[in-house]
Amino acid sequence: MSVILIMIPGAMVLAALGVWAFINAAKKGQFDDLDTPAIRAVFDDDDYTATKEGVPDAPHMRNDSVGDNNADAPSV
């Protein structure tokens, strides 16, 4: 049983490490915005754009019948 004498302080130190990590993360603002990162992760891929830069005529993914002719679309 005397191992508990080491285990409990050990567990406390681990818990303290966790709390310390949490405080640091909170102070750096990692929990400031809990909504956007969820969205960002889903659409992070540029594959969603079928039309890559420089390939203006590739078909894109819009799911309706919009005619697509970018040849005359002005660029920024």
Binding site: E53, P56, V66, G67, S75
Partner: peptide, 27 residues
Amino acid sequence: EHQFCCGGCESVYNVLHGAGLEGYYGI
């Protein structure tokens, strides 16, 4: 060819298509 409800929409549409950002519509 395209119809827009306002000038703002028209210019955004053109910008998105010019820059290859049509993926916006899909999302």
